[in-house]
Design a protein around this nucleic acid. Structure first.
Length: 673
DNA sequence: CAGATATTATTTTTT
DNA sequence: ATAATATCTG
């Protein structure tokens, strides 16, 4: 406790009511949460199994759990719940699945699954084409996050278009039910509905969770906040930690206003600000504060530090994107030599993943070791999606989406016409595709040869499922992959045999993770049930894998990632590239008039830097294959002049051109409507 | 049914 | 420029 500053101490010790900790960047919020957990266990005699902390990512959950257990003496932290919102939701649904009407092994549809299901539904309808797919998916997600059920969506629809989407929403939910599946939003929504309608169940969970802590509270959406409210009830045993200036996920439903709402919903709320920063130089914080002051605020906050003034922020304007990447590479090389920095001390942050391409090339040319994090994720890889689909079908035969993905992968000579016939039959009988294969009525619809292929598949899957019921389920999975010669299939479908080997490695890694997850579930014994492959598969869909080899983290590499991915991290020397209008702020955000979030994104980038910060931009940039002139980002105008060194602008400061002036004015005007 | 060719839309990302 | 997706041909 002696290592905490007075504000932090207050946040840890205050347990008499709901508590909001406004934790600025680098202010030690994780320390506050973990120490508070330790305090609750050791000084307040709340057993660890009655404390829950919620985060948004598995990584954050893992870290927090680890740090908390280190703080607590002995094994007193056993049974502590530190999980993501979605994992908690999954556990609630799993425990209550009977009364909710789900069969064990129910599937979790990721957004790609949801998308393909919606596509199917809309094709049948006809009047909504695929242009609207994203819109529809987004709207449905919004409705779910706002706890609006299909019937309600139908009745409040403002336009025929909205009405049509509401109808698809209704059928989408019905389809999910039929597939014995839930989507990501349901993982929160269904527990909330359950708690609202079933006081007995709610009470049981309230007895289980006596104190609740929430991290990154500014990223909660409406249903997540409601879940928090329901669990906490009127006990006020709640601590939330967040920073409204670091809210960068509004585009996926986050409601930063939940921070202000908390004040209204809990009048006795204690608000504690953490403004001392332990990460950056005063210069960097001055720049960050100055920029973010352009956003409206419900809670005022200004970061300060005792880390010294530091170097001015540099803004480098380069001829084109090529020169920009080149400049960053040479800067890293020279600074490393001059100042004895390590490669790992540098991070290059950008708005969009595509920007990594050029940088990657230049770094390679200069033989600079680098690591790109983010981009296409492990679970987006086709080989992983394929194997996951096999796992899902084994665990939940009603999962038509999984069925369709793998029925002809590897090739089994089963084509669209056969599947259409099967689909037609299944929907008439209101059964799943897999179940339909057992029926005799199919004989009149599908040529014998094709039917035989289908049934051979069905028979084989059933055998694999039986094998998985034994005590070595993962061996059964390995055998299954052997049966279909998945490795051969990968070799056939990869650009090189090297690529195929890499992909097979991924598959093996997934299978290992499955084994580890099963082992972990059985040792945790939190449910008291025997370890089941069903649970492990569900966990894997939520990407709760054991951490991948950390060898790379320890090695000396320049870090490349998007601004979004950098939240929560820190680096001695940060480069923010592409500081241009249409890129940062992004074009779409300009169109949607969502400049404030882009400004926060810039703020997040700036506050990652510990010692030096360099921003770069290109005068010309190739976009969609066409070279075009760029305009410096409006955010550069919002930096305090005294703390910035400009280079490549001709004059002392960035020229203010007409186009930029107009945009700034337009933005101002928009504040009033 | 499978491979070849034309078209098309291109942020951020975790669960 | 590129990658994913729709359409066409053998």
């Amino acid at each position: 406790m002696t290592q905490l500053n007075p504000r932090q101490k207050e946040a840890v010790l205050y347990i008499d009511g709901p508590c909001l900790v406004l934790a600025g960047a680098g202010s030690g919020k994780t320390s506050v949460i973990t120490r508070k957990i330790a305090y609750l266990i050791e000084q307040c005699d709340i057993p660890a199994r009655h404390i829950a902390a919620l985060t948004f990512t598995n990584k954050a959950a893992r870290e927090m759990k680890e740090r908390a257990s280190k703080l607590v003496k002995g094994s007193a932290s056993r049974g502590l719940t530190v999980s993501t919102f979605h994992n908690l939701g999954l556990n609630i649904i799993r425990r209550e699945h009977k009364s909710l009407g789900f069969k064990p092994g129910f599937s979790i549809f990721d957004s790609e699954d949801a998308r393909s299901l919606l596509k199917d539904l809309m094709m049948k309808d006809g009047d909504l084409d695929s242009d609207h797919l994203d819109l529809v998916q987004h709207q449905i997600s919004n409705w779910k996050n706002d706890l609006i059920i299909p019937a309600r969506a139908l009745s409040v629809a403002q336009s025929p278009g909205e009405q049509a989407i509401a109808l698809i929403y209704q059928r989408y939910n019905q389809a999910l039910r039929a597939y014995n599946a839930v989507d990501f939003d349901d993982l929160i929504l269904i527990p909330v509905e359950l708690f609202q309608t079933n006081a007995e169940v709610l009470q049981r969970w309230q007895r289980k969770i006596r104190y609740l802590l929430v991290d990154e509270y500014q990223d909660t959406n409406s249903s997540q906040y409601l879940l928090v409210q329901l669990i906490v009830g009127n006990r006020g045993a709640l601590t939330v930690v967040g920073d409204d200036d670091q809210s960068i996920y509004a585009w996926r439903g986050a409601r930063p206003e939940n921070m202000s709402l908390l004040k209204q919903d809990y009048p006795s709320l204690r608000v504690i600000k953490l403004e001392q920063n332990y990460r950056s130089t005063s210069r960097i914080l001055r720049v960050a504060n100055h920029l973010i002051a352009n956003n409206p605020h419900d809670f005022d906050k200004a970061l300060w530090s005792e880390m010294g003034l530091g170097d001015p922020i540099r803004v480098l304007r380069c001829k084109n994107e090529d020169a920009e990447a080149e400049r960053v590479a040479t800067e890293i090389l020279t600074q490393r030599l001059r100042k004895q920095y390590k490669f790992r001390d540098f991070a290059i942050l950008y708005r969009g993943n595509h920007q990594a391409r050029l940088l990657e090339m230049k770094l390679q040319q200069h033989q600079i070791p680098y690591k790109i994090s983010g981009g296409s994720s492990f679970f987006a890889k086709t080989e992983i999606k394929d194997v996951m689909a096999y796992l899902r079908l084994i665990v939940n035969p009603d999962d038509d989406n999984a069925f369709l993905r793998i029925i002809n992968t590897p090739r089994r000579q089963i084509g669209t016409s056969t599947l259409e016939a099967l689909g037609g039959y299944a929907s008439e009988r209101h059964i799943s595709l897999f179940a339909a294969l057992d029926e005799l009525g199919l004989q009149s619809r599908i040529p014998e040869k094709n039917l035989e292929r289908l049934q051979r598949f069905a028979h084989w899957i059933k055998q694999v499922t039986r094998n998985c019921g034994g005590d070595r389920p993962v061996d059964a999975i390995r055998e299954m992959l052997n049966d279909i010669d998945y490795e051969g299939w990968l070799h056939q479908n990869s650009a090189s045999s090297k690529a195929a080997e890499k992909r097979m490695e991924n598959v093996f890694y997934l299978v290992e993770s499955l084994q580890k997850t099963i082992d972990k579930n059985s040792s945790d014994d939190d449910e008291g049930e025997e370890s089941r492959i069903e649970d492990a598969v569900a966990k894997l869909v939520l990407r709760d894998m054991m951490e991948r080899q950390e060898e790379e983290d320890l090695s000396d590499q320049v870090q490349l990632m998007t601004l979004h991915a950098s939240k929560g991290l820190e680096f001695p020397h940060v480069f923010m590239v592409g500081m241009e209008e249409e890129l940062l702020p992004h074009r779409n955000s300009i169109e949607d008039n969502n400049i404030e979030e882009e400004r926060r994104l810039t703020y997040v980038g700036i506050t990652r830097a510990q010692r030096t910060l360099t921003m770069t931009l290109a005068g010309k940039r190739k976009q969609f294959g066409e070279m075009s002139e760029t305009t410096p980002s409006r955010f550069l105008d919002e930096l305090p002049v005294d703390d910035v060194e400009w280079e490549g602008f001709g004059e002392q400061s960035p020229e203010k051109n007409l186009a930029k002036g107009e945009e700034t004015l337009a933005n101002l005007l928009n504040l009033f409507d």
